[in-house]
């Protein structure tokens, strides 16, 4: 089993009424891999992640994680099976502190024994400290999550996904709304995650994508348009057509 693919999305269709947000899409992720998903607004990127984590139910197709069909599993069991997702708009628990948010996300907090503890175990503390460091939020640990700056919120979200100990992390626009410098930091952060996790990243920003140096899949109208390196994808006439007049989005002003 360890040799098979990590995640297989097979002929997936997600419909909202008559509209197919995902249309017969297939995608395979290998273990220990990084994949970038790009595509114009409304291409279905977030919807694909919704389907993978059990937030929307596909009307056809299968999602298989390491040989187990997770298509109809409840959301919390999918996380336990090994997939955790960062949402496009940060969904932090605003009234809890940074530390509490991370502690909550910690996989070791699940179950009744953990629920009745008033302080985290040594193990949990060490792990949470690591993630605070990783995300650069050590100084903000006692601040309510709702009061963080935008970029910090995104990092905290990434930290929470990491804390879940899932093998596969799905990051929906982790660098959205960030300054240039913050984006570079975020790209480095994501890069560092890849040593322990497989990562699927959605983003619009080509400089960010370039920095990740990972294979790219282009989604358009719920279908997979092209897979390849960023260079290949960029030069592809079909992809350029999809981005229509906004083909400059595919250029990278930093290069």
């Amino acid at each position: 089993m360890t040799n098979g693919p990590l995640l297989q999305v097979e002929h997936l269709t997600v419909s909202f009424d008559d509209f197919k947000a995902i249309d017969d899409l297939s995608l395979t992720l290998e273990p220990q891999s990084v994949r970038v998903l790009i595509g114009p607004n409304g291409a279905g990127k977030s919807t694909l992640l919704d389907a993978i984590i059990g937030r929307v139910r596909p009307s056809a197709g299968r999602i298989v994680l390491r040989g187990t069909d997770i298509t109809r599993m409840p959301a919390h069991r999918i996380v336990r099976a090994g997939i955790c997702r960062k949402f496009q708009t940060p969904g932090l628990l605003d009234s809890l502190t940074v530390y509490e948010n991370l502690a909550l996300a910690d996989a070791r907090g699940r179950g009744w024994r953990a629920a009745l503890r008033t302080r985290p175990t040594r193990d949990q503390q060490v792990r949470t400290e690591q993630i605070l460091q990783l995300t650069g939020l050590t100084a903000e640990r006692h601040r309510p999550a709702g009061r963080l700056a935008h970029g910090q919120k995104q990092w905290l979200e990434i930290g929470m996904v990491v804390a879940s100990d899932a093998e596969l992390l799905l990051l929906d626009e982790p660098a959205a709304g960030m300054s240039h410098g913050e984006r570079e930091q975020t790209a480095d952060l994501v890069q560092r995650l890849t040593t322990r996790h497989s990562v699927l990243v959605i983003d619009h920003d080509m400089a960010f994508v370039e920095r990740l140096r990972a294979p790219v899949s282009v989604l358009h109208m719920g279908r997979l348009l092209k897979e390849g390196t960023l260079q290949e994808v960029r030069q592809d006439p079909q992809v350029r057509a999809v981005y229509l007049g906004r083909a400059d989005e595919l250029e990278c002003d930093c290069a």
């Binding site: 409840p74 955790c84 605003d94 009234s95 509490e100 996989a107 953990a114």
Partner: peptide
């Protein structure tokens, strides 16, 4: 002060979020 108490508040503020962190919220 327990983790359970914190979970309750978290469920109030964002139940789906808590579910997406791997918790079955119903038993709590």
């Amino acid at each position: 002060r327990s983790h359970f108490g914190r979970l309750l508040v978290a469920i109030r503020d964002g139940e789906n979020r808590v579910r997406c962190l791997g918790y079955d919220t119903v038993p709590y």
